[in-house]
């Protein structure tokens, strides 16, 4: 039963507009409202469906967030390594999410940070170093960090793995590092699934 309950994981992707990966959003279009993408991920011999919500990136639409963030299992913050402002905004996105989604245990809510578009100009136009990004992630409670290029398909599968793992919070070591409170996790995903299984 627990495996069934967790088969569907709701993941929210946030970040300034235009930096996420089209493989995430699938449609080559600016997101209006929220787009969905489902992705099957195998993790520890089990198959999970990631229900990925890509919400509109323009700040103007943020008031919609509250409706969309409800019941999220994981929040993915994406920035463009070539645009400083998109990195600076990560904190805003994170806080906005915590306020609007108001998860039961905000300290331990699973985030993942993705630095995207590492391919651009062979990495020469990069303005945010990996070190800087990792430092920020560490300061926010050891948020897992991964760098990708949607265009070149670099680390995309890995990114999904990390997302799935964090959404599940079942990884042994990670559990010790990131998620001391497993009881809470179980109950929150149970709560969610009750809405989804019917």
């Amino acid at each position: 039963m627990p495996s069934r309950r967790r088969a569907l994981l709701k993941v929210i992707i946030l970040g300034d507009s235009g930096y996420v990966n089209k493989k995430f959003s699938n449609q080559y279009k600016a997101t209006i409202g929220a787009d969905f993408l489902t992705k099957e991920v195998q993790f520890e011999d089990r198959l999970f469906t990631l229900q990925i919500w890509d919400t509109a990136g323009q700040e103007r639409f943020q008031s919609l967030g509250v409706a969309f963030y409800r019941g999220a299992d994981c929040c993915v913050l994406v920035y463009d390594v070539n645009v400083m402002k998109s990195f600076d905004n990560l904190n805003n996105w994170r806080e906005e999410f915590l306020i609007q989604a108001s998860p039961s245990d905000p300290e331990n809510f699973p985030f993942v940070v993705i630095g995207n578009k590492i391919d651009v100009d062979g990495g020469n136009s990069r303005v945010v170093s990996e070190k800087k990004a990792r430092a920020w992630c560490a300061s926010k409670g050891n948020i897992p960090y991964i760098e990708t290029s949607a265009k070149e398909g670099i680390n995309i599968e890995d990114a999904f793995q990390v997302i799935a793992k964090n959404a599940l919070k079942t990884g042994e070591e990670e559990e010790i590092i990131y998620l001391p409170d497993t009881i809470d996790v179980g109950s929150s995903s149970q709560q969610r699934s009750s809405g989804c299984e019917c």
Binding site: K10, G33, A34, D35, F36, Q51, R70, G71, G195, C196
Partner: peptide
């Protein structure tokens, strides 16, 4: 529910 409705409507 809201989530599945939104997904359904989008689709």
């Amino acid at each position: 529910d809201f989530d599945s409705l939104l997904k359904y409507i989008n689709e």
